[in-house]
């Protein structure tokens, strides 16, 4: 929550700094993207299925033609059901169908740098995000849940493109790839590594 607060404060500070850039678009933009995420590393030991249940949304405040800062959140759910198997536990065994879920809600501060001028037909950019993520680990043995909630640091570099719907249009198509890392440890997971593809829209609003 702290990072959310800091992000908001940062944004308010940026508003105060509003200077006379020759901008084509209003400085504040919002984006909403649909996300597909692929687990990597030890997260694959927990669930190796690609997640098609996710979205991400953010606010960016453009300090100038190139640089913007903002805030990003979202949701991603990893889900995998394993057929009945016998698991060895301390002093015994459990025969169960395991359903493994991990729900991730990050709240990250972002910095983006655009690699082309705002009047370009395609505006590539690179970005970096850091903050905290809520990790909800829930492993079901049959109908019985083994659940752990935790907040953990997360960092997420990003490359992407914005394609305006016409020159100077406040509406842009957005596509990006993010790699997210978190030193998250839970049972078989020793760290959280995910590559995520997002497509959506960005709208300059203010």
């Amino acid at each position: 929550m702290k990072s959310l607060k800091n992000g908001i404060l940062l944004m308010i500070a940026c508003m105060g700094m509003q200077t006379a850039f020759a901008q084509m678009r209003s400085p504040l933009s919002v984006n909403v993207d649909y996300s597909i995420a692929q687990p990597l590393g030890s997260l694959k030991d927990y669930t190796d299925k690609t997640s098609f249940r996710g979205w991400t949304a953010g606010l960016q405040y453009h300090l100038n033609d190139r640089l913007s800062v903002g805030l990003r959140s979202g949701y991603q759910e990893f889900f995998q059901k394993l057929p009945r198997a016998v698991y060895h536990i301390d002093g015994g065994e459990i025969s169960a169908v395991q359903t493994r879920t991990l729900q991730v809600v990050p709240i990250l501060a972002t910095v983006q740098y655009q690699l082309a001028k705002p009047d370009a037909a395609v505006i590539p950019y690179v970005g970096l995000a850091a903050g905290a993520a809520s990790m909800e680990y829930n492993k079901f043995y049959g109908e019985f849940s083994d659940k752990y909630d935790k907040w953990q640091f997360m960092a997420s570099p990003e490359i992407g493109i914005n394609i305006p719907f016409g020159k100077g249009s406040p509406l842009l198509f957005n596509a990006n790839v993010q790699y997210s890392y978190s030193p998250y440890k839970m049972q078989e997971i020793t760290s959280y590594n995910v590559i995520q593809a997002n497509v959506g829209l960005r709208l300059h609003i203010n």
Partner: peptide
């Protein structure tokens, strides 16, 4: 949106719901 997350307990058969602990 997050409230429409997949509920593992839905679409779970009785057989899948059972665990046998020794």
């Amino acid at each position: 949106i997050s409230s429409c997350s997949k509920d593992p307990l839905k679409n779970m058969t009785d057989e899948e719901s059972r665990i046998y602990v020794t």
